[in-house]
Design a protein around this nucleic acid. Sequence first.
DNA 1: AACCGCCTGCAATTGCATTGCATTGTTTAG
DNA 2: CTAAACAATGCAATGCAATTGCAGGCGGTT
Lengths: 147, 147
Amino acid sequence: MRAAMVINYRNMLKNLDKLLQDKNIRPTAMRLLALEYISSQQTAVSLSDLEAAFHRADRITLYRTLKTFEEKGLVHSIMDGTGSVKYALCEEGCECAPEDLHVHFFCNKCRETICLPMLRIPKIPLPDNFKQEEASLVIKGTCGRCN
Amino acid sequence: MRAAMVINYRNMLKNLDKLLQDKNIRPTAMRLLALEYISSQQTAVSLSDLEAAFHRADRITLYRTLKTFEEKGLVHSIMDGTGSVKYALCEEGCECAPEDLHVHFFCNKCRETICLPMLRIPKIPLPDNFKQEEASLVIKGTCGRCN
DNA sequence: AACCGCCTGCAATTGCATTGCATTGTTTAG
DNA sequence: CTAAACAATGCAATGCAATTGCAGGCGGTT
């Protein structure tokens, strides 16, 4: 049992490691931890969340870690209107247009932001000569847990 | 001709005045000017825009003017992801759910934000137990003018 | 005319995002 | 194996937008 867990944990690290490598991100200890945290969360995480999870780590380093993840397409950022940017893992193989193409939900009760990857942003018929490059749809209300 | 313009200007002020009164906002000089400016713009305005238009006015007063307009339902705010909040007139008779129900467009070239009141945000079929209260859809790209 | 409340202006502060720089750690070329 | 080159980290400082406190001023009411 113990052994199995250790092996699983090792495997997980291997996987996270691979995730980073695949995106050309050097797998440092901090980054592995950050990535582990992000992927363990059901909701999008803010810099403050990360900071709270690793209170011994430097805020700036965490900030740059998130920025790096975003640049390399490992996570995407979400502006949910709370004033602090949230980050969530990109889907496998997604070339994430900056501000992704799926819907995000912000719960007014628990104040968490979640990705709804199965819900794509509908195509909107823009006026003549308008060209769409990105889109961001944030729905606010109460989430399944809070209802 | 001159006389007609004067009369039209007077009428306009009367109209703006009425707009304010209807929303229970006391029509001070500053507010009339701010409202005139906002309604003369084709695009949503930020606090900085207002500040630039009235460089003799106090930034804080302009800030509070916008806040008052928003509270009273005269304008709605738009978070377009630029980091500064934009404001635009609400449609006649709209009870503007905070973060309105129409689509907004942000042009990556001219960096202006515009309302597209004729384009309603489509209804999204949320997962079980999720309740929608508001929604914000911002499309980014290049606008008609910039193409 | 006196009172009261809203509006305005100035000062100061918060909060999040961002950059500069020196140090440490890791990779790579010789 | 070592040194140079580069990347990541930690600390300090700054930028920028939003926000609040307070005092004075103005308008409207009694």
